[in-house]
Amino acid sequence: MPDTTPKIVSFEDTLSAFFAAITTDAAPLATQFPILQAIISIYCQQPLEDIYQFALDDESASVAINRLKKNLQTCAPEQVKPLNSPLTYLLDELICNIQQHAQTDKGYAYLHHNAEQHCIDIAIADLGITIYGSYVAAQKHLDRLGDSDAEALNLAQNGYSVKNLPDTENRGYGISSNMRMVVKGLGGEFAVLSGNALLLYSQDTKKILSLPSEIDFKGTMIIVRIPDQVPNNFNLYTYTS
């Protein structure tokens, strides 16, 4: 009997399957694609062996970053060297964001090399106060925010930080620069789920979805897909200033 389960191929397929799985009984889809299992598990706060949970002190955060890079070393040794700088930049900034803003005591990380599709799937998440909650806690940009997780995502992706110095915009690079690096520099795809908003950024589209009320993630999850070959003209510093 032929398998009629829809095949998950693209990044959008993965996100679609995630939303279908958490709102209906579409569990079989989750077994198809490793990152889908991971993001469902984080969302539902169910432990999964492949998800690395780490404390947010410096030492644990460093161990987490090095462990993820070691995972890549094991499963895709040829890709490690060219990907080392962008991958380290991505993991450093996203984990640092959790430390600085999420008001929680641990983070979650997942990295998988999808050899069939020549890409690396990554999820970095926390069950903290969400991006919206971070702006509210800092009493920043409240006039624009209203009660909207989607507006908070819009501010974050444009690099509006809650912790700039008084005379310079020295912060707010974590999400904004990594988005550009992943999509424009590496040809990948980037999504942020925070509260009940989803930012989706890929080669074809950039939009923020304000999600139905039944979807309300108590935290922030960054989901990234990066091709496993780094373009020859990639320059990390294009995205860091």
């Binding site: 679609s16 709102t23 999600l211």
Partner: peptide, 27 residues
């Protein structure tokens, strides 16, 4: 000066999970 896009990213309000799936499949 910080470089920011001239126009805001569109925010699309999805009332149902069907709307979400539609948005994800629309390129």
């Amino acid at each position: 000066p910080r470089q920011r896009p001239a126009t805001d990213t569109p925010i699309i309000h999805c009332e149902t999970i069907g709307n979400v799936l539609q948005q994800l499949s629309a390129r």
